[in-house]
Design a binder for these strands. Structure first.
Lengths: 210, 210
DNA sequence: TTCACAATGTTAATTTTTTCACAAAAAAAC
DNA sequence: GTTTTTTTGTGAAAAAATTAACATTGTGAA
């Protein structure tokens, strides 16, 4: 297997989630079009993605749910698991922690950081909250590889710099402020305002057509 | 102007945000490569997007910040403004409200819904919180066009159905549970778990290369 | 004035992503 | 036992998105 497209990676993660649910309900096999319906995509797309990861199903029986879950795991998970930190324990940071709570064994949120003295030293939803001043120390101690930025926009840049200095390898930036990182740090930015504006645009468009 | 690609719409929203900041600092013109640097894309990409919306800059002076802000607004905003509701006033819902607080005059979060009796009847960050039972009534009364789903995953489907029944035209689904909507409702789904898994994958990949 | 530079605007090429179309074959139906 | 149906796997085509290449031209410097 050579290069997996970004989009394929995203879909694999989603396939797995759907498959895990199937698995719980005791379903042993699944067709490409069933996966496709769940994800609002086409069956060909699913089959092509699975082709790319070299998984082959059974004709007329579909794909073995358990096998596929394991294969996807072997591709996207790290064997040893990856430690993650949340920078900014506000509403968004806490929302993320709750989302994750116990879901992914290979991705663990092991630390949160904040500037609010009321939060520092406490545990929130099972995640200990530390002071920003201790960020570098904790990141190194706990071998944290990924930082999720959920601070207010005007602290995004300094927080990102802290993370980079501490040696994280990936940053997921949820602030609306674009940040810069060195080449060896993988950066993913997501902007909720943009997404809502996009939805609004297409709603407007649809109204206009009518 | 005919069809604007989805990706272009997203970038236009982001350009505008960057431009608004420039405008505040008193900058009157900006070059394509300056915009590009902020957004981590290429200058050609910026120029192409602007070409698509028919905006033309001044040679050697770049683009007029104010004009461009207004033009992008005329494309992606609705004249009358659009009313938005948040379904699920948990951490994520509240995070979104704070994000938006007063930022976009054309996109207003005018109602929140929840099942928790302690929240119902109160105002949170300026947004009144209603009971789910009143959803259809309030959506119609307030002429709400877009619903943002921030409920727990196992309530996603029923909440989506409520929204559709109430007549919203767009749904932004932040739960990890894919939903189905009729064809005339624009649906955008975003999954934080997938995004984090993707970051983890590319971090793993980068480690392996070394 | 003339030259060099720096920026835009756009056609064409490339790359990436998705879809079409169909062969192959297991299972079911008859 | 033959035919039909259903589903996978994939080469080829199409569509979408990005990048390259370059002509054009306003501006400032010499």
């Amino acid at each position: 297997m050579k290069h997996l497209p970004h989009k394929t990676i995203e879909r694999l993660s989603q396939y797995r989630r759907a498959l895990l649910i199937c698995h719980e309900t005791g379903k042993s096999h699944i067709y490409s079009h069933e996966i496709a319906n769940i994800q609002h995509i086409t069956a060909v797309q699913v089959r092509r993605d699975l082709m790319l990861i070299g998984y082959t199903g059974t004709l007329r029986k579909g794909y073995n749910v358990k096998e596929l879950i394991d294969l996807i795991g072997s591709i996207i998970d790290s064997d040893e698991g990856i430690h993650v930190a949340i920078i900014g324990m506000g509403n968004l940071g806490r929302a993320l922690i709750n989302y994750f709570d116990g879901k992914r064994s290979k991705l663990n949120i092991v630390a949160g950081f904040d500037t609010n003295p009321d939060k520092i030293g406490n545990t929130m939803s099972g995640v200990p909250c530390y002071a920003n001043e201790d960020l570098e120390k904790i990141i190194r101690e706990k071998d944290i590889k990924i930082g999720i930025l959920t601070v207010p926009a005007d602290h995004a840049i300094e927080s990102a710099e802290l993370l980079v200095k501490a040696g994280v390898k990936g940053i997921l930036n949820y602030t609306p402020k674009p940040i810069n990182v060195p080449n060896d740090v993988y950066l993913e930015e997501y902007d909720m305002i943009t997404t809502l504006e996009k939805v609004a645009f297409f709603v407007k468009l649809q109204e206009m057509v009518k």
